[in-house]
Amino acid sequence: MSDAATLEAQVAHDDHGDHGGHGGNGAGHPPTTTGLSHNKLGMWLFLGSECLLFGGLISTYMLYRGRASENLGPDQIYDLPFTSVSSFVLLMSSLTMVLAVSAAGRKDVRNVKLWLTVTALLGATFVGGQVYEFTSFYREGLGFTTSLFSSSFYALTGFHGVHVSVGIIMLLAVVGMISRDRIPGDRAEVVELVGLYWHFVDIVWIVIFTLVYLIPA
């Protein structure tokens, strides 16, 4: 797990873009050329560029999935039922996220805080599942440096796991900041942006789940 910690440290600094994005300009953006808020444009562009990042990791995995040494390959190690449940959990967290965003639209503060917490809890169980999966693979002999398959698998799912953990921290921090009213900008927009990030991390998992777990080596 120490790799996950350092991974988190490295990737976290890679994500500053969107937090910083929140700090954009003031409450209720002044009139802009397209009538849209800078933060939302910035966030969608950031998600567009993240497609390239995860695309690179996924294609590295697809290239190296067959190169497992000594017959410890994808077919022997993947536990499909468990992973499909974790995909179901991440999908449900997307649902609760949307409910949080629509609650924020209705300025219903109690439900916003509630749904954000539920989303974070579901995300935490998903990451808990990932940590369990990594531990059991490690016990079965699949270390980070065992083979190319294992290095690229851990890199891809580790990156995604770190992005989900950063998402959980953002969700819970936003709950804290809402309750103490420390959010400088437009609160509904902050919730919406965190929602966009969370949904993006979910659709990346949809792609990973199908390409990595379901398609046999």
Binding site: A12, H13, H19, G26, R182, P184
Partner: peptide, 18 residues
């Protein structure tokens, strides 16, 4: 370093633009 970075990011996020 990562802890300080998180501290910086959240300090930034909670600071109004103007």
């Amino acid at each position: 370093g990562a802890l300080l970075m998180v501290f910086g990011i959240f300090g930034w996020a909670m600071e109004p633009g103007t």
